[in-house]
Design a protein around this nucleic acid. Structure first.
Length: 576
RNA sequence: CGGGGCGUAGCGCAGUUGGUAGCGCGCAGCGUUCGGGACGCUGAGGUCGGAGGUUCGAGUCCUCUCGCCCCGACCA
């Protein structure tokens, strides 16, 4: 490709709206252009890279036994009503009305369509397992697009759906996909961490996310450097009985006593006033879940994990209750107590059993109770792990300290189970002739986000650094002083020669100064730069330089294409 | 949806107490340059996001509205 003809322009300054590194570099390199919030065009350079990513993914999906197909973007709204996910997707689902006043959805994902399809074609266990995938545009009306390609409303995604006859089959498909994903990230040169993930209210048992650890990530990952435990903070567990504070689990249960605690409303104040650690108090937090008032009780030193709480309650909408709602429930904020709480649903974190003789509100302004014990003094409707893991907490597996980091979610795998297949009647006859629902899994990767994540963690102050397998072009042919002696015709000849050898070369045929060309070569991140100048021409040679290295080497012009090819091959080997 | 910020040339920005719009980069032409974003001269490019209002006069003041960015909420 001749640079002078390339559509798209490199920018010296990044547009003001770009904040994240990948966003800035994608715009400056002329790889993408924004059309609206969360909606982008891919320009030729960006599209070339995206297609390379796509091909790597496609190869790994095929290798794992996946069959590629294409599914519709326009989907009958009835499909979404049938699965019930018109509600759970809510406003994120784009819908439109056709000329016959029929409502259609713009596919945010394709479980409904593919399950409907599979139900019409699969009847027997002999046809399972089945792995089907698609790589195509999906649309979601995200509440807040952000970070360039990191979170958008229109995006290209690879989704594979697995269909199995039994749990063991699902496990196998799941393992296959996890391995395929690891292969993909390895080939993309992207260090992705596999972490336990929340599967949401709809998902089945297992779910994992693949995270690229970087500051710009939207998700928080909790991990243990000792044993390797890693989980999304939404899901992360930790040991509640291993705090540095002394817990009196074994202590004798003391009688409940009321204590005047004027002015002491927060946990900190109460603990200080009473003279106990915060872990010897119980904290009350109030939520509204799908309109129902929820009283949550948790040990004073812990915080509520709202995702865990939402899953425990099996509700979709969860928010903190307003002051009015708290009063309406007959509770006194700051002094609320599960003891004597009537007519409200009480959900407790299992930390309330980690000790005894807690200090808790007395449900009376200015008073707390000492020596509260569950279940002696109060009952709860639900008890579960609903606590938020924080850095510094103890690992539930090995008791070492947990740490936290930000991550970009570049892949998500799910064991869906039979939730959707049952809704669509996607069942099969097993070898005993019995009808059973197909067990499903789904496995997604967002290509644009992947592109952004790669740049986030592979760049320097000059620009992007592509690996050879992803670079839009492998070689940047950079002639200097085009009007001098034989530079231009020689460069032209080399360009033809390299292309003939199948090398992807970007030929900077622009009449610009060396600085401009070198800086663009670095900004675009082309792995190998070949500089031809009157100087190198004197010795019938050309200068080769890797994007990642400072040193240069001179290559004789004679039989150049073969030498370049060899260099590129050596580099590929060195990386693997 | 809540909080904050911003809309002036392709990009980055300036524009005073209200007087009819400018700078840098980029772009076009000519010339000089040519190993890390060179220089000179000439030139093109703007319904100042949109609508309404105040005023003799609005980029500037008022009202409404649209869009974009960031934080949070949200996000199988």
């Amino acid at each position: 490709m001749r640079f002078s003809k390339l559509f798209g322009k490199t920018l010296r300054q990044a547009p003001a709206e770009a904040e994240s590194i990948s966003h800035q570099l994608l715009l400056r390199a002329g790889m993408i252009a924004q059309e609206a919030a969360g909606i982008y065009s891919y320009l030729p350079l960006g599209w070339r890279v995206l297609r390379k990513i796509e091909n790597i993914i496609r190869e790994e999906m095929d290798k794992a036994g996946g069959q590629e197909l294409m599914l519709p973007v326009l989907q009958p709204f009835e499909l979404w009503q049938q699965s019930g996910r018109d509600v759970s997707f809510g406003k994120s689902l784009f819908t439109l009305t056709d000329r016959k006043e029929h409502t259609l959805a713009l596919g945010p994902t394709h479980e409904e369509v593919i399950t409907d399809l599979v139900h019409r074609y699969v009847q027997s266990y002999r046809e399972l397992p089945l792995l089907l995938y698609q790589i195509q545009t999906k649309l979601r009306d995200e509440p807040r697009p952000r970070g360039g390609l990191l979170r958008v409303r229109e995006f290209i995604m690879k989704d594979l759906y697995s269909f199995d006859a039994d749990e063991a089959g699902l496990d196998e498909s799941y393992q296959k996909m996890c391995q395929a994903y690891k292969n993909i990230y390895a080939r993309l040169d992207l260090p992705a961490l596999m972490v336990e993930a929340d599967s949401g209210a709809i998902g089945g048992k297992d779910s994992h996310e693949f995270m690229v650890i970087t500051e710009t990530g939207e998700d928080e990952v909790i991990r243990c450097s000792s044993c390797g435990y890693a989980a999304n903070a939404e899901k992360a567990q930790f040991a509640k009985t291993d705090k540095t504070t002394v817990l009196s689990k074994a202590a004798k249960l003391l009688p409940l006593e009321e204590l005047a605690t004027p002015e002491a409303k927060t946990i900190e104040e109460v603990a200080k006033f009473v003279g106990v650690p915060t872990s010897q108090t119980l904290k009350a937090v109030f939520y509204s879940a799908d309109g129902e008032f929820i009283f949550v009780i948790i040990r004073g030193d812990l915080e509520v994990n709202e995702t865990k709480l939402r899953n425990t309650l099996k509700r979709s909408e969860l928010r903190l209750a307003t002051e009015g709602e708290v009063n309406e429930a007959g509770l006194v904020a700051g002094f609320a107590s599960p003891i004597g709480a009537k007519g409200v649903k009480v959900v407790a974190d299992d930390s309330i059993t980690s000790s005894s003789n807690f200090t808790v509100g007395a449900n009376k302004p200015g008073y707390h109770l000492r020596n509260a014990n569950y279940p002696r003094d109060f009952q709860v409707d639900l008890i579960a792990d609903i606590a938020l893991a924080r850095p510094g907490d103890s690992c539930s597996k090995c008791r070492d300290k947990l740490s936290s980091a930000r991550g970009i979610e570049v892949g998500h795998v799910f064991k869906l189970g039979t939730f959707i297949s049952e809704k669509f009647g996607a069942s099969f006859l097993d070898d005993a002739g019995k009808s059973r629902p197909i067990i499903m899994g789904c496995y997604g990767i967002g290509l644009g986000r992947l592109l952004a994540a790669i740049i986030e963690q592979s760049h320097d102050d000059k620009g992007i650094i592509w690996s050879l397998s992803l670079a839009p072009y492998q070689v940047y042919l950079c002639p200097l002083s085009l009007d001098k002696s034989a530079v231009a015709p020689t460069a032209e000849k080399i360009y033809q020669e390299l292309q003939k050898k199948g090398i992807e070369v970007l030929f900077d045929d622009r009449d610009d100064s060396p600085g401009v060309k070198f800086n663009d070569a670095d900004l675009l991140g082309i792995p190998l730069r070949l500089t031809l100048s009157p100087r190198t021409l004197q010795s019938q040679s050309i200068e080769a330089k890797w994007r990642t290295e400072k040193e240069t080497q001179l290559l004789p012009l004679d039989n150049l294409a073969a030498q370049v090819k060899k260099l590129l091959n050596e580099d590929v080997k060195a990386q693997s």
